[in-house]
Structures are given as structure tokens and as C-alpha cells.
Simulated scan of single mutants.
Amino acid sequence: MKYYHVDVFSKTPMSGNGLTVVLLDEPLPDQDLLSITKEFNQFESIFLYPMENGMFQARIFTVQEELPFAGHPILGAGAVIHKLFYADNSTIDIPFSLAERNILIHSEKAEQHFKVKMNQGAAAFVSTIGSAEHCRIAGALSLSLDDIDKDYPIETVSTGLPYLLVPVNKNIEKCRISCSDFELFLSGYGAKFVYVFDTSTLQCRTWDNGGAVEDIATGSAADPLCAYLVKNGRAAQGDIITLHQGSYVGRPSVIKGCVDSRNEVIIMGDVAFFATGTISI
């Protein structure tokens, strides 16, 4: 099996969010896919099956579990497919099929990298969290109530994965998960993960729910945040919103997104190629 290591949300290798894209020769058991993901030890790996019914079948794994959707794996896989199968095309639309949805991405070849974007559809606004819960949420993130920006709501929003969006106006650098069962904690708000953002700089942070690994750049969280900012009057439809992530783990990344006239969220990112190889199992 061939694999490609790409860096997403960056124009140059060894920055942005690393990703392993594995081209499967044949289906493998779920445990093997999880074990391969653990071996590469990226935040996520994506496995691509041969095209079927005009679509590339894909599965996405973290080192802990399979995800129904994630943003940067789809963008990175789109660049790999463009380079491998459509090298003569300067631009190409590529359809993906995941377990629960189909996604069409658009890839454009640049000089040394690829520019990839995808339409995430309309965001689902799951819930707005009442102020009585804000102190509890702040505490679970090693923050104080004063760190929460009271001019912004705390909301759970989803474009495939539901994120609890937590606005702060200071001390984002001190933010850490300090809740013993954070996944259960988040489920009480209808969320799978948390996304903390500084309202003045749009610097963002998220982690695995154990708090052990901070993600470098998170497309599936950037989409809900872009929709949230437009919904709450902090950006307008059509505005390009620039989010920053990864600075606290030494991999600064830039994620761009917008909400179009149909209220659908578009996420955009650069993809750079770092390495390729063969899996020998």
C-alpha cells in the first residue's frame, strides 16, 4: 500500500497539520486501520479505496477511533488524488463518499502546493449554552469566568461534527482540559469536541478529549466557527474569515472559510507534500 504524508493548511512542508493518506489495495479490518493510524501517530489518517460509482470512498481514523467526518483529511486527500490521477488538470472537482455523507471538493494546482476547498453545507446550530453554565465550562478548560468573552455566546454548532465553541478574550494560552471525563462533559451540551477561540485574534485551540494531544489545525471545527461568526454578526456572508491555529504546538496554521449566499460554509486550505512510502504489511 502506498501512503503520502502531506501538510494541510500550509504552503510549505513541515508546517501546518500533518496527515497520512493511505491508498488501500483491498479492504482491511477496522483494527488494522486503527493500528496503522497509531503507527503513523498523526492526529488523523485517511484511507482511500478505489473509485466506485464515480466517487472516492474514504474512512478517517484518529489514534482512538473512526470519525464520520473531519476537515483536514478530506482537503489533504483531495490534493493527493489531484496529484496522482489528474496531474494534467490545473483544477479538478473530486467527489468523496464517507459513511454518512458525500462531499465534493475543488482542488487547484499552485506552483509548489495545492489549494483545496470544500462546501460543508449549512451549519446546524445545536444549542446555545445559558450563562449559568459558563463558570462550569471555564473550569473544565482551566480558565476563570472572567476569561470568557461575555459579548459572545457559547454555542454548540456542527457541520458534521458538533463542537462546543467557547469565546475567550484573554488567557487562551493557559487553556487546558482539566475535566476527568471531558467527552461525557461535552455530551451534556450536545458536543463531541471543544473549540476555544480568542475573539480579538481568532487564534483557536482544540484537543483530543483526554487533553493529551492538541490539534494543529481543525477544518471540522473551523466550519462551525465561521458559521457562528456570521450568525452572530461578527462577519458577513461572503467575507473570507481567517482563523489561526497550531501556534502553541509550534506548527502555526492558517484556515480560511466563508459563508456563501445560501448559508453554506466553504472551508479553504493549502496542502504541501512532504513524503511518500510503502506500507509493508
Rank of each mutant, 00 (worst) to 15 (best):
Lys2Cys: 03
Lys2Gly: 06
His5Ser: 14
Phe9Leu: 12
Phe9Glu: 02
Thr12Ala: 15
Met14Pro: 03
Gly16Met: 13
Gly16Glu: 08
Leu19Glu: 09
Val22Gln: 08
Pro27Lys: 05
Asp32Phe: 01
Leu34Val: 08
Leu34Asp: 03
Ile36Trp: 12
Ile36Ala: 03
Ile36His: 10
Thr37Ile: 06
Thr37Val: 09
Lys38Asn: 14
Glu44Phe: 10
Leu67Gly: 10
Pro68Ile: 01
Ala77His: 06
Gly78Asp: 12
His82Ile: 04
Phe85Leu: 09
Phe85Gln: 01
Tyr86Lys: 08
Ala87Pro: 07
Asp88Val: 10
Asn102Tyr: 12
Ile105Tyr: 02
His106Ala: 11
Lys109Phe: 10
His113Asp: 05
His113Trp: 04
Met118Pro: 00
Asn119Val: 08
Gln120Tyr: 07
Ala123Lys: 05
Phe125Lys: 07
Arg136Asn: 05
Ile137Glu: 05
Ile137Gly: 14
Ala138Trp: 08
Ala138Arg: 02
Ser142Val: 06
Asp147Val: 06
Tyr152Phe: 15
Gly160Glu: 00
Pro162Gln: 04
Val166Asn: 04
Lys170Glu: 13
Ile172Asp: 00
Arg176Phe: 12
Cys179Glu: 15
Phe182Asp: 02
Ser187Arg: 03
Phe193Lys: 00
Phe197Val: 01
Gln203Val: 13
Cys204Trp: 11
Gly210Asp: 13
Gly211Met: 13
Ile216Met: 05
Gly219Phe: 01
Gly219Thr: 02
Ser220Phe: 04
Ser220Ala: 14
Leu225Asp: 02
Tyr228Val: 01
Asn232Met: 12
Arg234Ser: 05
Ala235Trp: 15
Asp239Glu: 07
Ile241Met: 01
Gly246Pro: 00
Ser247Phe: 09
Val249Thr: 08
Ser253Arg: 10
Val254Glu: 10
Lys256Tyr: 09
Lys256Phe: 14
Val259Gly: 13
Val259Leu: 15
Ser261Thr: 10
Ile266Asp: 01
Ile266Arg: 11
Ile267Ser: 03
Gly269Cys: 08
